[in-house]
Design a binder for these strands. Sequence first.
DNA 1: AATGTAGTCAACCGCAGGCAT
DNA 2: CATGCCTGCGGTTGACTACAT
Length: 281
Amino acid sequence: MAAAEVQSAAGWGRQLQQDGGGWRKGPWTSQEDALLVEHVRQHGEGRWNSVSKLTGLKRSGKSCRLRWVNYLRPDLKRGKITPQEESIIVQLHALWGNRWSTIARSLPGRTDNEIKNYWRTHFKKGKPSKNIERARARFLKQRREMQQSQQLQQPTLMPTPTPQSKDIIVAETGDARTDDDAGGAAAAVAPSSSSSSLSMGGGEAEDLIMHQDAMDDLMMCPAMSYHLILHGAAVAGHQLSDGGGSCCASTSEDYGSSEDDGATWGSLWNLDGAAGACTLW
DNA sequence: AATGTAGTCAACCGCAGGCAT
DNA sequence: CATGCCTGCGGTTGACTACAT
């Protein structure tokens, strides 16, 4: 980011300091970035504490890792969060709560820090954006329509999940994060289901967060179901039929305008069967 | 034009889990 | 089993920017 360099060259320069261990703190310079990038190119990610020894960087391993993960990684997606990504964030937050790294895994190119910042900026203080309101309204509408059509046609194709099936979903697609494994992913749902982790007023939370609803919503969304499958084990009872459908193949560049979010959301839904050809991102 | 306020984002901190010794 | 180190995560901070008054 050019701004970082500007900042380090200007205002943030005065922040530079060293902690007790002799580590530099504050904004990174382009030279430091170059050293870190070269180190990762040669040695790969990990062993962050050895970076300072091998490169001469006066940065802690922690700082190096953070810089790499949040800024220097080549696969990072630059630019604003798209309405599509926003919708995913909202749903996954309803599902997982503040588990930003878990949410980030479902948004390739986005970091947990970025998502965390985005959430705080847009939702933490209260009212959701118009994008979200519209997306949610459309989401619920289409959900209703799908439910109605299913009741009329194939009541067993995609049943409304029972509590048991919800548990299966969460457990099977649960967090890959190892330190959560002990508690179990299913347990992690509890806070989000009750939304107890959200610092919102009741009305606001009701307006934005789908709570227990979210689980139903997710399972009623083919794209999300498939996405969860992609990021975890196959979900019992929700394997998608084989078909040529292609969903949400657009990239972020396709969603530059907030006015597009209707179409964006629709694209999440317009699936004539998903399976093989379905590429969400 | 000056000031205030909200938004954005990079970076730091503390904590916890995994793992080697 | 206990200890220490490394890594990763979520929460928080603080400076800059954009917009409003």
